[in-house]
């Protein structure tokens, strides 16, 4: 793995939706603070979660993600700060418009699947008839129609997760919160669920997605926020953040006679790292950091001396950004 040198960023200054924020956000948190005794779980965290998108809520263990999610679900209440749902101050009736799949989730073991799904749907305010209709639809969609009369204790973990997913989305909430939705699923079923999440988004739902699996963040999220030690240290559009984090590092593959000498000469002019020469005689792969976004000078220089095969800008992955930001933040403190 290569090292990226990160320019200092002013954290938390991405007011992407500064204008008409109310119109385009499903949820706004303003300076939300929550303390448990001496321990601060959230310290003045502000977030704006845009409508009809998938928002990645990231952070190491104990960063305060679950507390924030519980505040959104009105399971706990903030000590300070406000949360707005669709432009209104968060109120009990909003619960019916939120679907929450917690990380610590389970079902009543001795209850039958159908009965239990009906119960949970009714608690979300659906009528029995409506709940039954929608459950039938979802059970067929996920091919679990024959489970209706099974007891939960007969199901495997993955099967139970499917039921929980259905129950979370059944009441067609405006805002869906998934906390590690793929845990317990095999790759095939994880894919099915991932597709369903994308479908839900396409149907108009806004989704908060909390996970440690960065590849799914990369795949799904348009926006992210990074919490660390009860504070938000980064948020914004994932592509913008990546642009902020990229630092003109390019991966270059070329063919040249006298590789060592070439690299030595090049290193005088540019910052070259990780040169690999173990392939064919004249082949070199290396990373180079350019002083600016303008790559013409470099390309002119190189193309005079070598045959360039590839020239690719490296964009940091969500994983890199996550680790980098958290580590930088930790050493700063």
């Amino acid at each position: 793995m290569y090292k990226i040198q990160i320019p200092k960023i002013l954290w938390g200054h991405f007011y992407i939706f500064a204008e008409n924020a109310c119109m385009n956000t499903i949820l706004v948190a303003k300076e939300v603070t929550k303390k448990f005794g001496e321990h601060t779980a959230l310290n003045k965290v502000s977030l704006e979660i845009p409508k009809n998108s998938i928002y990645g809520l990231l952070g190491p263990n104990g960063a305060g993600k679950t507390t924030l999610i519980r505040i959104i679900n009105q399971i706990t209440y903030p000590d300070n700060g406000q949360v707005f749902f669709d432009g209104e101050l968060l109120q009990p009736h909003h619960i019916a418009m939120i679907g929450y799949l917690p990380e610590e989730r389970g079902l009543y073991k001795s209850m039958k699947v159908g009965e239990q799904a009906l119960y949970l749907a009714q608690l979300k305010g659906l009528s029995k008839v409506e709940a039954k209709k929608r459950l039938k639809y979802w059970f067929e969609k996920l091919e679990i129609g024959d489970w209706w009369n099974k007891k939960v204790q007969e199901l495997s973990k993955g099967m139970a997760q499917k039921i929980q997913f259905i129950v979370t989305v059944l009441h067609q909430p405006k805002l869906l919160i998934f906390d590690e939705p793929f845990s317990g699923f095999d790759p095939i079923n994880a894919n099915i669920i991932k597709d369903e999440i994308i479908n839900l988004k396409n149907d108009g739902a806004s989704i908060i997605f909390s996970t440690h699996r960065m590849e799914s963040v990369e795949e799904l999220c348009e926006h992210i926020a990074l919490l660390h030690n009860a504070e938000k240290i980064l948020d914004g559009k994932l592509s913008d953040i990546k642009n902020q984090y990229k630092n003109n590092i390019y991966k270059v593959g070329l063919e040249v006679e006298g590789r060592e000498r070439f690299i030595a000469e090049l290193s005088d002019k540019f910052l070259v790292t990780e040169a690999v020469m173990d392939r064919m005689d004249q082949q070199i792969d290396f990373l180079v950091q350019l002083p600016s976004e303008d790559s013409r000078e470099f390309l002119t220089y190189v193309s005079e001396k070598a045959k360039v095969h590839s020239f690719i800008e490296t964009i940091p992955s969500a994983n890199d950004i996550f680790i980098q930001t958290v580590q930088t933040k930790s050493t700063d403190e």
């Binding site: 679900n73 399971i75 009990p92 619960i95 939120i98 929450y100 799949l101 917690p102 610590e104 989730r105 389970g106 079902l107 009543y108 073991k109 949970l120 608690l123 979300k124 929980q164 129950v167």
Partner: peptide, 18 residues
């Protein structure tokens, strides 16, 4: 205790008050 150990509790209290 059963609701706690079966981990259904958080699902329920995201719908109703504790």
């Amino acid at each position: 205790i059963e609701e706690k150990t079966s981990r259904i509790i958080e699902v329920i209290i995201s719908s109703v008050k504790p």
